[in-house]
């Protein structure tokens, strides 16, 4: 397996959607390729970090204002 072939399955591997034989092949590649180990680990970390950090928070005050505005208009519909 080449690195490009490995990359083509990277998302499925991360999302845990690979068949058992495919997983074995991918793991085999990982044993001999430090580049792909780094790519896999840091890509996983990328997703984890974005999931964990709320980068666009809706402040409570604004949230309430928006909710009120929406519902006031709905009542008029």
């Amino acid at each position: 397996m080449t690195c490009s072939e490995f990359l083509a399955h990277l998302d499925d591997l991360i999302d845990d959607q690979v068949t058992v034989p495919m997983r074995t092949e991918l793991e085999e590649h990982l044993r001999g390729c430090e580049h792909c180990v780094v790519t896999l680990n840091t890509t996983r970390k990328t997703i984890e970090i974005y999931r964990k950090h709320e980068i666009y928070e809706l402040p409570n005050e604004l949230r309430e204002r928006l909710q009120k505005a929406i519902l006031a208009k709905c009542k008029k519909c």
Partner: peptide, 17 residues
Amino acid sequence: RLLRARLQLRERLSRYF
């Protein structure tokens, strides 16, 4: 798109991490 987005973000974050 998902694959490319993930890889691009990873690449860009490498600078910091």
